[in-house]
Design a protein around this nucleic acid. Structure first.
Length: 476
RNA sequence: GGCGACGUAGCCAAGUGGUAAGGCAGAGGUCUGCAAAACCUCCACCACCGGUUCAAAUCCGGUCGUCGCCUCCA
């Protein structure tokens, strides 16, 4: 840890204020963020959340924290079962397919692999122990239909995140279920008939409650108390509230010291969501925009603000990130490879090679990022570097090093070309011929012909860019 | 109804007491055969009304508007 760095502060949802991070163990951070339920494609809203926490992890490592990051995969769930039934395939198969799609999306967005990515189905014994522990302490009870519920009234600190006045009052909309002692109680285990999809457990055949997996995985991989727990703002209640209740009731100690939540992506003033049907999948967005552009779009707003999704915003993001990448492309970006394809890679970057950076810019960057991850401000610092590089009035080597490093800390893929030129590659022979013709025309000062070829190429969707190195095709 | 967030230029978006970062779009200019890129210049009475203060986008009160959560949710 470098003590000269500004102290990292984050908005802690527990106390609704920005707080300086004090870790349990000096120099180490344990972080858990909620992952996907693999039943359908991820959309831009999910991308925002995953990018935000990816940037947090990258920044934590940048300022020297030994960070252990866990993100789960919910691979057993009613939504998966229902969707699989609809498709006529086994739920495990659907979950497997969607998990691969999720990984592919994460790779396209250059999101690092967590150190652990546990699946719910691989942590059942841990969940059983968790439930039994709660039953033993009378924080949970079994019902005659083999459900197990958490007894919310037995946990006095319920409502830390949401500041509920009275749990019963808040859940008054829920239909009363006779088997439950109180409406506020939530399922740890749902009993199902033997012929239904489920698992055998000490409590009978059935399936785990949604909240349970996170609590038991956190216990398994990170311990009873962790530094930071993150997720989407829409998970605050009931998901995170119930995680706290379960874990703190069982362990009699603090569950997570800091809770961080990202704001929602909006479409036409409404939250992007599956149920609203107003979502753009990551896959779809990648057809028109680069992974870097999506990341730029996400980082151009503060992570807690709601952000409106528009094509226009994505286009602006694409132009913006292209400009930054353009400024840095002449420099050695090989030092910053894309996120690795395998998980559990902690040592991110080779820092053995001494590099010279523009310390003032780095300091400013740290200041912005340490202030609750002010990425819009951080991006402004990057644009300032790009401008100085383009002016070429200073030592561009140092500035280029700095820009490359900071782009990398924000998780931009420096190997990605500023713009995808796939179509140009597909028709390479044709374009090469046209460009050759135009070059000859220009050499003979036949500018009329040169312009005709320019117009022809421009009509096929490319801009021409002449430079001493030759002519470049840039897709519009 | 309860709890919470937000309203800053055509668009996106920082800034939370000392007088408005940055990006996109646009205008003018420099440089190029033209164009592009790059660079320079220009572009905001901070939703409204009161109040506190020497000083308010920023703090307080109110009004209007938008959104989120309240057992599918990133």
């Amino acid at each position: 840890m470098n003590s000269d760095l500004p102290k990292l502060s984050l908005f802690n949802s527990l106390h609704r204020q920005v707080e300086e991070i004090q870790t349990i163990n000096p120099g180490k951070i344990s972080l858990y963020t909620c992952g996907p339920t693999v039943y359908d494609s991820s959309h831009i809203g999910h991308a925002r959340s995953f990018i935000a926490w990816d940037v947090l992890v990258r920044y934590l490592r940048e300022i020297g924290f030994d960070t252990t990051w866990v993100r789960n995969i919910t691979d057993i769930d009613d939504k998966i079962i229902n969707r699989a039934k609809l498709l006529g395939i086994e739920p495990e198969k659907l979950a497997r397919i969607e998990t691969y799609k999720f990984w592919r999306d994460m790779q396209a967005l250059n999101i690092q692999w967590p150190d652990h990515e546990p699946k719910a189905t691989e942590n059942l014994p841990q969940m059983f122990d968790f439930i039994q522990g709660l039953i033993d302490k009378e924080h949970a009870y079994r019902t005659e239909n083999n459900d197990v519920y958490f007894r919310v009234k037995s946990f006095n600190d319920y409502g830390q995140l949401k500041k509920l006045v009275c749990p019963d009052e808040v859940v008054s909309r829920i239909e009363h279920q006779d088997c439950k002692e109180s409406n506020a109680d939530f399922a740890l285990w749902k009993g199902f008939a033997k012929d239904e999809i489920g698992f055998d457990s000490p409590f009978g055949h059935g399936r785990p409650g949604w909240h349970l997996e996170c609590s038991s995985m956190i216990k398994r991989y990170l311990g009873e108390t962790i530094d930071i727990h993150g997720g989407g703002e829409d998970l605050v209640f009931p998901h995170h509230e119930n995680e706290i209740a379960q874990s703190e009731a069982l362990h009699q100690k603090k569950f997570a010291n800091y809770w961080i939540h990202n704001g929602m992506i909006m479409v036409d003033g409404k939250k992007m969501s599956k149920s609203e049907g107003n979502f753009i999948t990551i896959e779809k967005a990648l057809q028109s925009f680069s992974g870097n552009a999506i990341r730029f779009f996400v980082l151009s707003a503060h992570y807690r603000q709601p952000v409106n999704y528009t094509e226009q915003a994505l286009e602006a993001a694409q132009v913006g990130i292209n400009k930054l990448l353009k400024s840095v492309e002449a420099f050695n970006t090989d030092k910053y490879p894309p996120a690795p394809l395998t998980g559990g890679v902690k040592a991110k970057r080779d820092s053995s090679e001494k590099q010279i950076f523009d310390q003032a810019a780095i300091d400013e960057f740290h200041k912005a990022m340490s202030d609750d991850l002010n990425t819009p401000c951080a991006l402004a610092i990057l644009f300032d570097l790009a401008k100085r590089i383009n002016k070429a009035e200073e030592n561009t080597g140092i500035l280029g090093n700095t820009l490359a490093k900071l782009l990398d800390v924000l998780g931009f893929n420096l190997q990605e070309k500023p713009l995808s030129s796939q179509a140009a590659v597909d028709n390479k022979a044709l374009y090469d011929f046209l460009l050759q013709q135009r070059r000859e025309a220009r050499e003979l000062k036949n500018f009329a012909k040169a312009d005709q070829i320019r117009i022809l190429i421009e009509q096929s969707g490319y801009k021409l860019k002449d430079s001493p190195q030759g002519t470049e095709l840039i897709p519009v």
